[in-house]
Amino acid sequence: MPTHEDQARGVTSSPAPVINPGSEAIRAALKEHADEAMRTYYREVVGEAPLEQAQMRRASNLDEHGRFGYVLTLTAGGDVAPRDVEILMPGLPVDMLRQSMTRMYVDDSSWTWARG
Rank of each mutant, 00 (worst) to 15 (best):
A25R: 05
F68K: 01
A37F: 02
A54D: 10
L51G: 05
V11W: 12
N61A: 11
R83F: 03
T75E: 13
Q99V: 06
D108S: 12
A34T: 01
K31G: 03
T75G: 14
R83L: 13
I26H: 10
E86G: 08
Q7T: 13
L51M: 06
L92A: 08
D35V: 00
E86S: 14
R27V: 15
I26D: 07
S14W: 14
Q7W: 13
E36W: 00
L30A: 14
A28C: 14
R58W: 01
A16C: 13
R103D: 02
D79R: 00
P15L: 05
P90K: 09
L92K: 06
I87T: 12
D84P: 04
S109V: 09
V71K: 08
G91A: 01
Y105P: 03
A114F: 06
M1N: 12
V45R: 14
Q55A: 15
L72D: 08
V106R: 08
E36F: 00
W111V: 02
W111M: 11
T75V: 12
A34Y: 00
P93Q: 06
R57Q: 08
I26E: 06
L72R: 06
W113C: 10
Y42L: 04
T112C: 05
R67E: 09
I19M: 07
R98A: 11
A37Q: 02
W111A: 01
P50E: 04
G91D: 02
E5S: 07
F68L: 00
T12W: 13
T75C: 11
Q53C: 13
T102E: 12
M96Q: 15
M38D: 00
R103F: 02
L51A: 04
L51N: 07
V94N: 05
S100H: 08
I19F: 14
D95G: 08
T12Q: 11
Y42P: 02
R103H: 04
S13A: 07
T12R: 14
D84S: 04
P93V: 01
G22R: 01
H65N: 12
A59G: 02
A114V: 14
M101E: 12
S23A: 11
P15H: 07
R67I: 06
V80T: 01
R115N: 10
T75D: 13
A37T: 01
E52Y: 06
T40H: 01
P50C: 04
W113P: 09
I19Y: 10
W113V: 13
R27Y: 14
V11Q: 05
R27E: 15
L72H: 13
P15A: 05
S23R: 09
M96K: 15
L62H: 10
R39A: 07
P93N: 02
T3D: 13
K31Q: 09
D63N: 07
I26P: 10
T75Y: 12
A76D: 05
V80I: 02
A37L: 01
D107S: 12
Y41S: 05
L92V: 13
R9S: 04
S60L: 05
V45P: 05
R39D: 02
S14I: 13
H4S: 15
G116S: 04
R83Q: 11
A25H: 07
E5K: 09
M101Y: 07
Q55G: 15
S13L: 11
H65A: 15
A28R: 15
R98V: 14
L92E: 11
S13W: 09
M104L: 14
M96I: 15
I19R: 13
I87E: 07
E5P: 03
T12E: 08
L88W: 12
V45W: 09
H4C: 06
G91E: 01
